[in-house]
Structures are given as structure tokens and as C-alpha cells.
Design a protein around this nucleic acid. Structure first.
Length: 423
RNA sequence: GGAGGAAUGGCAGAGUGGUCGAAUGCGGCAGUCUUGAAAACUGUUGAGGGUCACACCUCCGGGGGUUCGAAUCCCUCUUCCUCCGCCA
């Protein structure tokens, strides 16, 4: 959520920057400014009414104490109309504040100046690429065929017990998955992230805090009975740990990592591009989350990108990094880098990580602040990234490491797996 | 699930209708003393709105009510604690 103060002060800059997202925010911003003025004017009137009422109440108290009940009763009558005014103004105020909130929820984050213009994923800017794309045998298989051949992932079994998009990992497949989780957590811990285990269901307030609600409601599984949401990413519970917190400057940086399953309804997407592990309703992910001083957040973002890079290097997977264009940028993000691994057998790039700086957008919703040198409260910056998402990394490994006699296990994972080949 | 009790500032903890945004202690910050530190002493220290700055307004778990006036009384929700039941 953008800060009202910023909208007031830098209206034109914001409208201009939002054009990169291909939206014309001018009407919305104008509405916000109008409502904000109304809200403040009403607040001023209400405050004056309440001040008058408070004053009278004090006088009445004094009069009763000194035994002047009659005079007190005269004053009492005067408070009646003030009360009515206050009630009416209070209602107007609440309504204006509510409308304002609804409007603010509709405005996405302002893209960072680095964000390239563009409409779709085709306009994303490749900023880095590394690793050799392996030359596979002509009869190389996509991962869903490999999964069947070696009996390590069973999609049909998942359909039987739950539905499409809920695979069952078996034997070495399950072990490889667990190995990846441990490996990622270890790498993140080495880099200074503190490991957390967090709830997999969150309440509505948490959904609002990180920006999944109110607009992406349909993408989360909702447990109606208890009004809880299954998390679409660990970002939600982990970042919300800092909700309503005022940090000290010396607390920065805050670095957390967490492994969780992620649940996404992904309504309405079927077809070739979602085969196998490419898109699931439940998948595993290890996430990194940082809370930073505004001055340091972009350096931190670069650091997170480097960190993910190093993991992919160790796994020896060919990858590239894209800077998302305005049209592809997530609603709450100011700047996002996507990591993609090349899947030789599918002959396409698979997104395996997304690293973002939300600047103050989430912090404003979360009321995540810190005391600066002058003792003033300011909003912190939040960042997060996948380090890493499991299924597509698994797909990339299966496809790129396949040989005529089985799938080799990447060297760094062998100690975690306890085997070096799936056959 | 049943029966009781509780929720106050960073923490602990007073406050049962007006003088309470809230005693006191601890912690934090600044200073005095000290070569430095500790101790001691002095001062300071919640959040939000509003204003050029003041004034002023709101907030004592959330929401609603009673009253001229609510941290304090009533209703309701949530959470925590104790006892019972169930249970990995």
C-alpha cells in the first residue's frame, strides 16, 4: 500500500511511474486525494466537537463536586447536540476512511526506476546468464516421463487421493526432494539467514499484510470453517511475524529462511505448459525474507540475487536472470528478478526463483517500522525470494542430468541423498 | 468440548466513574562522576491523526453499549492462564 503522504507530495511522479505498469492511475489518485481531504476536514470538525464536549464534561464534574447541581444540569443539556454532531461526523469519517482504504488497496506498488517498460514476460530484460546448456541424447525425456520410468513421482496417485496438481514423491524421488530442502536451508543458514518453522495456515490480517488479500483472494485455498488461508508462500507467515513491530536501527538486517509447502489454486490453467511438475497446487519451497533499512534494501536485493546465483552454480544448472518489466511485475513489488533454469528436454526456461524488493509497500500495510537516528518512526523495507522452489529445480535436475543409464545426482546433493544415481 | 479467572506502555505492575495517556519498578536513551567501565545520581523515554509550529483529537486486547463524563459499569468476540475431558 502506498503511503498517503507520498501520494499527497508526489502525485505526478507516482502517476508517471505507474505508467510503466501500463495503467493510468490518475483517476484513482485523484479520488484518493479528494477522499483524503474530505477525511481530514471531517476529522478536524470532529476533533473540535469532541474538544468542546470534553471541556463541558470537565466543567460539569467540577460543578457537581462543588454542589452546584442545578448549573450542572443546564450544561448537561448543551452536550446533547454535541453528541449528535460527533456521532454524525464519526460516521462520515469512518465511511471516508473505509473508502480510502479500498482505493489504496487497488493501487499497485510504484516500480523502481530500474524496471524496464513492457507489457508481458516477453519484455523482461535478461541481465545475466550462465552455464552450458547440455546436449542431450536424441531420445532425451521430459521429467514426467523420467518420473514414470524410474518410479520416483506418481501424478496419478496424487489424483486418486486428492486431485490434479498434488503429486506423490516416491523412494529416491522423495529422498532427492528432502535432500534439496536440507541443502537449500543449509546454504541459506550459512549466508546468515535464521531458519524458522512457521504455520502453514494464516488469518486474514496476515493475508492483507503481505498483499495477497484483498485482490488475490481466489488464488488461495480458504478454510471456511475457521476463516484461515493455506499459505501460497512462506513469505506470508514469515513477513507477518514482523507485523506491528517497531525495530531499532541496529536490528537491521533481519534475515529469515523457512521451508514450507505452498498451496496455490492456480484456477483455470491447464495444458502443455503445466504438465508434470511445471505447475502444481501443492509444492515445496525454501524462502528467504529480509527486512532492511531503506538505504540498504537495494544492496540487499543484489546480495540475495548473488546468493541464489551461487546455489545454481553449485547445482551446475544453466540459468538466466531476468529483470521483470512493468507489465510482468507483481502487484506489491518495486523491483523483481526472476531466475530461470533451462530445461533441455522441454527446450524451455523454467522459473525457479523470484527475488523482490517491496520497499515500503508491504511495510505500510504491516505497520513494520523502525526508529531512525532522530527517534522518528519510519517504514522499513521488506524483501523476499525463493531459495529455492523445489519442483522445477527437481525437473531441471532430472532433465539436464539424465544419461542413457539413469539420472545422475548433482555432486553437492550426493551427501544429502546418500546415492549418486537414480536408475 | 465443559467450568472458572485474566488481558493496562519495551517488560513487570498499580489504578473499580471525573484531578488518568495512566503511579511505581525494571529496561532504553542522554548527562554528571570516572583514565575507561561498573555502581550511584540527574534528566528523559508509548503509538497514531492534526498543525509551519503549537493547540487539539484518538488509542488501556477487538467491536458495540450505558453516562454530561469510561482503563474503571454492561454486552459480545478474540487470546492467554487454571481445573476437567479428549489427544500426536
Amino acid at each position: 500500500m502506498l503511503q498517503l503522504q507520498a501520494i499527497r507530495d508526489q502525485k505526478d511522479e507516482i502517476i508517471n511511474a505507474l505508467k510503466k505498469r501500463n495503467i493510468d492511475a490518475a483517476p484513482l489518485i485523484a479520488q484518493v486525494v479528494g477522499l483524503d481531504e474530505k477525511r481530514r476536514a471531517t476529522q478536524t470538525k470532529l476533533d473540535a466537537t469532541l474538544a468542546e464536549s470534553n471541556k463541558l464534561s470537565k466543567e460539569i464534574g467540577e460543578l457537581f463536586k462543588t454542589g452546584k447541581a442545578q448549573e450542572a444540569n443546564v450544561l448537561k443539556e448543551k452536550t446533547g447536540s454535541l453528541k449528535e454532531d460527533a456521532k454524525r461526523l464519526g460516521e462520515t469519517l469512518n465511511q471516508a476512511a473505509e473508502e480510502l482504504q479500498t482505493l489504496l488497496y487497488q493501487i499497485p506498488n510504484v516500480p523502481n526506476p530500474l524496471v524496464p517498460a513492457g507489457n508481458s514476460d516477453e519484455d523482461n530484460e535478461e541481465v545475466f546468464a550462465e552455464g552450458d546448456i547440455p546436449k542431450l541424447e536424441t531420445n532425451a525425456l521430459p521429467h514426467w516421463e523420467l518420473a514414470k520410468k524410474y518410479d520416483i513421482i506418481d501424478f496419478e496417485l496424487g489424483v486418486k487421493i486428492t486431485g490434479a496438481g498434488f503429486p506423490v514423491y516416491k523412494g529416491k524421488g522423495a529422498r532427492l526432494q528432502r535432500a534439496l530442502i536440507s541443502y537449500f536451508l543449509d546454504k541459506n543458514t550459512e549466508a546468515g539467514y535464521i531458519e524458522m518453522q512457521v504455520p502453514h495456515l494464516v488469518n486474514e490480517t496476515s493475508g492483507l499484510g503481505t498483499g495477497q488479500l484483498p485482490d488475490k483472494e481466489g488464488q488461495m485455498y480458504h478454510v471456511g470453517e475457521d476463516d484461515l488461508y493455506l499459505i501460497p508462500t512462506a513469505e506470508v507467515p514469515v513477513t507477518n511475524m514482523l507485523r506491528d513491530v517497531i525495530l531499532n536501527e541496529k536490528d537491521f538486517p533481519i534475515c529469515y529462511t523457512a521451508y514450507t509447502p505452498c498451496f496455490r489454486r492456480e484456477a483455470g490453467s491447464y495444458g502443455a505448459h503445466v504438465r508434470g511438475l511445471n505447475r502444481l497446487h501443492q509444492f515445496d519451497k525454501v524462502e528467504i525474507v529480509r527486512v532492511e533499512h531503506p538505504n540498504d534494501s537495494h544492496t540487499a536485493l543484489d546480495g540475495m540475487v548473488e546468493h541464489v546465483k551461487n546455489i545454481l552454480r553449485e547445482l551446475q544448472l544453466p540459468f538466466r536472470i531476468l529483470r521483470l518489466c512493468g507489465g510482468d511485475l507483481g502487484f506489491t513489488s518495486a523491483l523483481t528478478y526472476d531466475f530461470e533454469v533451462f530445461s533441455a528436454a522441454q527446450d524451455r526456461w523454467l522459473e525457479i526463483s523470484s527475488v523482490s524488493n517491496f520497499e515500503t509497500y508491504q511495510a505500510n500495510r504491516l505497520k513494520l517500522r523502525f526508529k531512525d537516528g532522530e527517534g522518528k518512526s519510519r517504514l522499513a523495507h521488506t524483501l523476499n525470494g525463493s531459495s529455492l522452489a523445489l519442483p522445477r529445480v527437481l525437473a531441471g535436475i532430472l532433465e539436464n542430468y539424465q544419461t542413457a543409464n539413469g539420472v545422475q545426482v548433482p555432486e553437492v546433493l550426493v551427501p544429502y541423498c546418500g546415492f549418486d544415481r537414480i536408475e
